[in-house]
């Protein structure tokens, strides 16, 4: 099994990113590149479905933080859903749950985004 695989699919104009594996200093470039590709192609609303994410280190959080400004400047956002308990704990410890909208399921996140529209 690869250390990290990332699938991205379009759901009604929302880029749903599904990382599988772990994001740390070894895999972060792959994660960052996937985010950059979305931004460069003008897809600024990104839902990270973290169901398959076993852990994320500060390197991964830094990658998100590094791109959130251009994303929000373009009217988009990064949302998170399906965080495993340990992954939520990492986000929460660093205050990221105040910076990003976190949902229990993909459906909840998509509904919230649809409500916004």
């Amino acid at each position: 099994m690869a250390d990290l695989s990332i699938q991205v699919r379009d759901m009604d104009g929302i880029a749903v990113m599904q990382p599988e594996g772990f994001i740390n200093a070894h895999t972060v470039r792959q994660f960052e590149s996937a985010l950059e590709d979305l931004v460069q192609s003008g897809r600024f609303t990104i839902l990270m479905d973290c169901q398959g994410l076993s852990y994320i280190s500060s390197a991964g959080l830094g990658a998100i933080m590094g791109l959130i400004e251009p994303i929000r400047e373009n009217g988009g956002d990064i949302l998170l859903c399906n965080l495993q308990r340990n992954v939520y704990s990492i986000f929460d410890t660093l205050g990221f749950t105040q910076l990003y909208r976190v949902f229990g399921s993909r459906e909840e996140a998509l509904q919230a985004l649809a409500g916004k529209a």
């Binding site: 500060s58 390197a59 990492i90 660093l94 205050g95």
Partner: peptide, 22 residues
């Protein structure tokens, strides 16, 4: 300081904070 970090997000400096918190 996480509360300051939330007000002024930046890249980096989080690893040591995770170590100290965990």
């Amino acid at each position: 300081d996480p509360s300051e970090y939330v007000k002024h997000p930046r890249k980096g400096g989080l690893g040591l904070l995770l170590m100290s918190r965990f």
